[in-house]
Design a protein around this nucleic acid. Sequence first.
DNA 1: TGTGAAACTGCATCGTC
DNA 2: GACGATGCAGTTTCACA
Lengths: 145, 145
Amino acid sequence: MDRIDNQILSIIHENARITVSEMSRKIAMSQPAVTERLRRLEEQGVITGYRAVLSPSKLGKYTTAFVLFKSKNCKEFEEFGEAAPEIVDFYRTSGEYNYLLKVVTETSETLEAFLESCNTFGFSSTLVVLSTRFEDKGLITSQDA
Amino acid sequence: MDRIDNQILSIIHENARITVSEMSRKIAMSQPAVTERLRRLEEQGVITGYRAVLSPSKLGKYTTAFVLFKSKNCKEFEEFGEAAPEIVDFYRTSGEYNYLLKVVTETSETLEAFLESCNTFGFSSTLVVLSTRFEDKGLITSQDA
DNA sequence: TGTGAAACTGCATCGTC
DNA sequence: GACGATGCAGTTTCACA
């Protein structure tokens, strides 16, 4: 994990579909060398995947909310969470609440319906997202790369 | 936006570095047709980008937390947030708190230092993430694709 | 680990429907 | 909108440093 690896990570976090050739030009290194470094970063688990970022609103999902949850039966609630398509992110947390969920739904009505379906598992508190300033800022700072 | 577009979105959300040829085999359509559909999905803003997913712990970041924030001066706080490398996600929310931040730091000590640097802007409540059950579940359900 | 060369594979583009 | 053909670009592999 040297400076070149950090450059590769920074570039590929910005644009996961960049070609290895283009990257090799950016960092002034041969294309097979970059391919090999990428392979290693994947193998070591530094890179865990590559994802397209989709616009919720363009897919008819206009409501995003964070739900703080205090569940009684954790096992049952986690099984419910796995199966619920509305839950995009699912975290176990410390504090008064033991779960935090990011929920994406069509409208506030479908959010309400979702919250009601959670009621049997415990108590929740919901924060509706008004707007997103930014998401998924890179973990590599310019000084690292 | 038909079933084939949904299939493309589902596939490329799973693996953003898949080749167009491989996709075209999976969905039994010619390579130029898939290229054209991809181009349109990008142009329409359904796909807003492609990102590598990086492991925080492999980069020395062992602490993730969600910070609920109640700020007095919103403009100043947002400028601070843009510049803070610890803040990975930044949302404006409804409710008692007006911001929600996802913060990734090296240790609980660096989290503490970050929280102290926020103090001038208002009041915060922090939920430390104990574990992540899942993140970034696809917005396309199997019935759509 | 990194490089250069060669064979292979994938992609952009265009004409056709 | 989708297809097939084609020339160019990117990737894989390997011998060598």
